[in-house]
Amino acid sequence: MLKKESKVHTIFKNVSFSTDEVAKIEAHFHRVCYRKGDVLLRAKDVVSDQYYVETGCLRVFYSDDSGREHTVQFAIEDWWLSDYTAFFTSDPSIMTIECIQSAVLYRVSKEDLDQLYVEIPQLERFYRKKLEIAYSVLQKRILGCLYKTTKEKYLDFTLLYPNVEKCVKNYHIASYLGVTTETLSRIRKEIAQG
């Protein structure tokens, strides 16, 4: 039976754990707090952790050689984030992760997670399902970038991140969509006019 106050129940919805398993998970997930503007990860850092977002809003972005930022993901409540390419391969990070709002996160290392997978098989199943969904969303986004109009991409963005617009700056949304802020304003105006 789960303790009501355990964050494990919130993080791993619909997964049953014994009291001992909850204790093991709690021992490896560390609550961390960040302020708006804090950077969790910079390009070229070693990535050994991934994070679960309890509260806040974060942005994962790539900076190209000219210094232009390309937002890859926003992470809001109940989302997971990291530079997953670096997390899974041990290559240096290519992404930067910054807090757009103050955030409360739960951090777990790859080493600890791999150990938990062995000890608690239902945890590995949970992550596999999360990765399957994430891969599907990523593939849809790539395809959308190839054939959808900017308006369609913006509407997809509002469905995926229904409350993010209140938290982020217009240039962050524009960089996620791969457009200028002027184009974003024009699209919003078109949608508002119906």
Rank of each mutant, 00 (worst) to 15 (best):
L2I: 10
K4W: 08
S6W: 10
H9D: 13
I11G: 01
I11D: 00
N14K: 13
F17T: 13
E26D: 09
E26N: 10
A27W: 13
H30Q: 14
C33R: 07
K36R: 09
K44L: 06
D45A: 05
Y52C: 02
Y52I: 06
E54N: 14
G56W: 00
R59S: 04
Y62A: 02
D64I: 13
D65Y: 12
G67D: 09
R68L: 09
F74A: 02
F87D: 04
D91T: 08
I100M: 08
Q101Y: 09
S102D: 11
S102R: 05
V104F: 06
K110S: 12
E111Q: 11
Y117N: 06
E119Q: 15
L123C: 04
Y127E: 07
R128M: 11
K129H: 03
K130R: 06
I133V: 15
Q139L: 10
G144R: 01
L146Y: 09
L146D: 03
T150W: 01
K151Q: 12
E152R: 10
L155Q: 14
L159S: 04
Y161I: 05
V164D: 02
V164A: 13
E165I: 10
K169L: 07
Y171K: 11
Y171R: 04
H172L: 03
H172T: 02
I173L: 04
S175W: 01
I187M: 01
R188V: 03
K189L: 08
K189A: 08
